[in-house]
Nucleic acid binder design. Structure first.
Lengths: 138, 138
DNA sequence: AGACCAGGTCTCTGTTGGAGACCAGGTGCG
DNA sequence: CGCACCTGGTCTCCAACAGAGACCTGGTCT
């Protein structure tokens, strides 16, 4: 099976019935690429762990995220129906983000990923040191 | 900055002992950022679903990945102890990648994410259309 | 001799992310 | 009155990064 065939089959399948994240042209791949991103995942985790939050709270909660990326990721999540954005027309303005059912579902799959990373971090860091040491000589 | 320094600073930022993916300078954040990436996740999913694979098989399996990114992602996964790379000194050369226990553990958390995306894709695409329609006028 | 194979690396260029300035417009402060 | 300040963004600029495609290695086949 050639690469072109794979892509074509993937596109056809996605156009008709099957959705396949492995297929470059499948819409589900686009969605997956958007969700399989550190900022999107950290935002979902923060909303899941701490409940509804304002823009600035999220920025503080997700260390190191720029306003630009926070805005962009939140827009995407909102657009795909994972997050609800509510504006309170006060002054100064108040905007609150919360998970919608779809987002809550996803957050429950993403959170374990964060916990796993924390639990296994030392092991992975040790592996890195070993790898780096082994490849320093050669 | 060495890994040691990073760990120390990160540890301080993270409250001395705790690893916290939300903290910008925590080593676990760096690991998380590396894993919360579409290529890394798709590679893990492919290895988990289809077993050990050669470089070119992975490239065919993970639609749209460039050799550069495939190499880079595989190196990272190998470095962190998630993936095992085995070279068979034949001609032409044969290189096989497989999951190590740590990688298999992670793959079992990542796979549901892919399946969820496929299962919910239509719903998310519908939400997008609605969102785009609502924002087209305004 | 020349082409071909796998599994990369190198170079160049277009896209993306981050830093920091700017904006709206209502409020308190002097 | 004039001015700074608040939030939740947007705009601009530059550095970093991802992708496309050329090149490499070195052994076999024609």
């Amino acid at each position: 099976m050639t690469t072109e065939e794979t892509v074509q089959i993937g596109a056809e399948q996605c156009g008709r019935l099957e959705l396949d994240v492995f297929a470059q042209l499948c819409p589900s791949r686009e969605l997956f690429a958007e969700l399989a991103d550190k900022w999107s995942m950290l935002i979902l985790m923060s909303l899941s762990a701490c409940g509804p939050q304002r823009f600035s709270e999220l920025q503080r909660g997700v260390g190191g995220v720029s306003r630009k990326m926070l805005t962009q990721s939140l827009r995407n999540l909102e657009r795909s129906g994972l997050v609800l954005r509510t504006v309170f027309p006060e002054t100064p303005p108040r905007v609150v983000y919360d998970l919608r059912p779809l987002g809550r579902e996803l957050a429950e799959l993403v959170a374990p990923l964060g916990h796993w990373t924390e639990r296994r971090a030392r092991q992975m860091l040790a592996a890195r040191q070993e790898f780096d040491a082994a490849h320093a000589e050669g």
